[in-house]
């Protein structure tokens, strides 16, 4: 089951699972997974030529709880710069936001946040 953001903003049904990167070294693999899960992750929305500006603003307000000004600013970042980071934090919640944004058919991706 995939994590979802409920109407109250809390995540539900989460099963974050990272793909192991080294099948021969179990302890190292476990350490990698633990660090990845504990690290910070960014939810980035990537521009597409399809979705309307007004639609993207609505989705940002609905899913991320942005006010009108923030939603418009983030939408313009996506439009003009090609992408915008809309949230960062723990992976499980980042996955939940990315999933919900994808349910709204925005091109949302997850990236490790290496600034922390």
């Amino acid at each position: 089951m995939v994590t979802k953001i409920a109407e109250d903003g809390r995540s539900r049904l989460l099963v974050p699972k990272l793909k192991p990167t080294n099948s021969q070294a179990l302890p190292k693999e476990a350490t990698h997974t633990e660090l990845a899960l504990e690290g910070r992750w960014r939810v980035v929305v990537v521009n597409d030529p399809v979705n309307l500006m007004s639609y993207v603003v609505l989705v940002f307000k609905k899913v991320l709880g942005f006010d009108e000004t923030t939603a418009r600013r983030k939408m313009l970042e996506v439009h003009e710069l090609g992408r915008s980071m809309v949230w960062s934090g723990l992976r499980e919640k980042a996955e939940a936001y990315a999933f919900t944004l994808q349910q709204w058919h925005l091109h949302a991706i997850l990236e490790p946040d290496e600034t922390h």
Binding site: L18, P20, F99, H107
Partner: peptide, 20 residues
Amino acid sequence: GPSGLPDVDLDFSVEWSREL
């Protein structure tokens, strides 16, 4: 759209897509 998930296992990816 594309999944946009880095390095997740196949089961998780399949479940993600199934729910979408």
